[in-house]
Write a protein that binds this DNA or RNA. Structure first.
Lengths: 347, 347
DNA sequence: CAGCGGTTTGTAAACGATTACATTATCAGT
DNA sequence: ACTGATAATGTAATCGTTTACAAACCGCTG
């Protein structure tokens, strides 16, 4: 490997001069600058950034922790983060934890061992105590899944969003409303369940335990829940699910059973991932301002990097209901109703 | 920041001893080991890995270059890579290029500046010449999108796969077969188009230029292509698309027009992403051994890391046709036919 | 108790850059 | 020709580890 010394020697200057050329210092004559640049080109010299990072005590690398890469939901968020990070000349790298605590820990140690300058969690496995402790010394932000840890955070108001969705179903005349959620209680899950209950209670509707189904974020969960609900003596007329993937499963199972999603059973999704608008029938859902969530989270992280002792902030961004066919009372043809989500290529 | 010196001082030993404890060298007495460990805990000391990486001239970090995070297709591939990398105690980090040459370049420089030990490209923007040059000095592997660059590579035989798919359509009795592809010619695109043509020619079927539609990987492309094809004097009875996302658009548009995907027009997807099995009707497609592709690619990369001068290899893994409803001749009900793809959670 | 082998520990060079400070070159003004 | 200011360049310390080599220590043996 060629080092700065090799370049200096070959160009007949000192390493300091080469370093100055590399860093664009103005205290180098045009003649030597050219010579050095030539030699750099000639030897195809690339500085060892480990050393530079060491000397400058910064890496300009930020980590984004995703539980999984296969979730459509994250792409716009990550794009927002990236755009914001680039403004301050930071690079981002995505770490996939698979919701595995050890994997998560191994990526966190990149931060504490100075291989990265900050982390945004899109979900985390560690407990609040541990996260808070790390956040006290290193820049950390939570996005979308915000626990009780002492960090800066950004998300939507999940409780309110669920409340709005369920209230909407009620306003359509539904009285027996089911909920399909996950066994694993993410912060967003807890809030969405709370919003569901609040809406039901405020409209004096009973929450029948048999109408509560639990599983994972998979469409299989939606299909199974659909079966279970249809098997009841008096099935619900509407279902609120906490994720589009579950809603898709519900809808598919209804179709398999020859039932019409919407008229026969209304289905509400959550997140407005591309499949919700793509599916036939299209699926009513709650949209989050994903790009903004990411952009804002990154903004908070950069603030923390500039000043680790800056106070923690909690920001809530506005959500939106996207009404589509799956909550349509009368479905005479399969024309796509409004609520087309922002154009997003499915590459 | 506490350094190894602080620990040494506090524990009353030399930095060498602390380093030995950190690295699990056996030449430390149990007594001092314990004392040092206590101090490390007490000061919550974390070594600066920039230095360690510098001394050891390795980072044990591998980069995976994705054009986009929103593609379902990549998740299993990445998992395969990760599993293989972990066996050799390497961490992986995902870099999203957005198909932007500058972004790609900025991540590649992480390799040449010794911040990472190797790269797997799931697609690349640089030209073959540039890639070959880098690959001569640094470990690089191409996966799924293999150009003419001098690197090790893994993919399926895209030409053969397309050939098989189109031959299958022909065996079902179709004679007028359209193709929907992308403007941008990725290596896989070129091969799939070639396979399409080969199958048509070998069965003495004319390739009507009006039956060739081009766009992006988006479902909008599928919808538009569907419109264009239906507007023809004699529309095709089957369509081969080079991506599931396009096929979904086709199917959706057929449904909107009140036509039956399958009986009225057969639709073939490619890649077997989760949406293909999820959609109603489910979509016939070509499945790639995604996990294995990733695992194998990483295996080749690790080989290159061990020995940069090891010869480049090109591996082709077997594909599979997954027959579903969208190529079904008579569709009496919406029962899901075989070809359920490997269970994959949609999180 | 000198000498020996083995274990444990310490000293200091090295990794490859950045940068404060020192030195040298350049040149205008007298 | 000399001075002093300014620009260009060089020297060497430094970042925080790892590790080769040297030194100290310990218990035994003869």
């Amino acid at each position: 490997m060629t080092t700065i010394k090799d370049v200096a020697q070959r160009a007949g200057v000192s390493v300091a001069t080469v370093s100055r050329v590399m860093n664009g210092s103005n205290k180098v004559s045009e003649t030597t600058r050219q010579r050095v640049l030539e030699v750099i080109e000639e030897l195809s010299y690339r500085p060892n950034l480990l050393v530079r990072n060491l000397r400058k005590a910064e890496t300009r690398k930020l980590l984004i922790m995703l539980p999984s890469i296969s979730n459509q939901f994250y792409s716009q968020i990550v794009r927002g983060m990236e755009d914001r990070a680039l403004l301050d000349r930071f690079n981002i790298m995505v770490c996939i934890t698979n919701s595995n605590p050890e994997t998560e820990q191994s990526y966190i140690s990149l931060l504490t061992t100075r291989l990265a300058d900050g982390i945004v969690f899109l979900s985390n496995e560690m407990d609040d105590e541990a996260i808070s402790q790390i956040a006290a010394a290193y820049p950390i932000v939570q996005c979308c899944e915000c626990t009780g840890a002492k960090t800066s955070k950004v998300s939507i108001d999940n409780r309110q969003a669920a409340y709005d969705a369920v209230s909407h179903l009620i306003s359509l005349g539904h009285r027996r409303i089911a909920m399909v959620s996950t066994e694993k209680k993410h912060p967003s899950t807890v809030d969405r369940e709370a919003g569901f209950r609040q809406a039901m209670e405020e409209h004096s509707l009973a929450v029948d335990d048999r109408l509560l189904q639990y599983g994972t974020y998979s469409f299989q969960t939606g299909m199974r829940a659909c079966e279970a609900l249809l098997a009841l003596d008096s099935p619900p007329s509407a279902v609120f699910t906490i994720a589009d993937s579950i809603a898709v499963g519900m809808v598919k199972q209804l179709l398999i059973r020859g039932l019409r999603p919407g008229p026969d059973m209304a289905v509400y999704g959550f997140d407005d991932t591309s499949i919700a608008s793509l599916y036939t029938p299209s699926i009513t859902t709650v949209a989050q301002p994903r790009y903004d969530l990411g952009y804002t989270a990154m903004d908070l992280l950069l603030r923390k990097i500039k000043e680790i002792d800056s106070p923690n902030q909690t920001l809530l961004l506005p959500h939106k209901l996207v009404i589509r066919e799956s909550t349509c009372g009368d479905q005479t043809d399969s024309t796509v109703l409004g609520g087309r989500s922002e154009q997003e290529e499915l590459v």
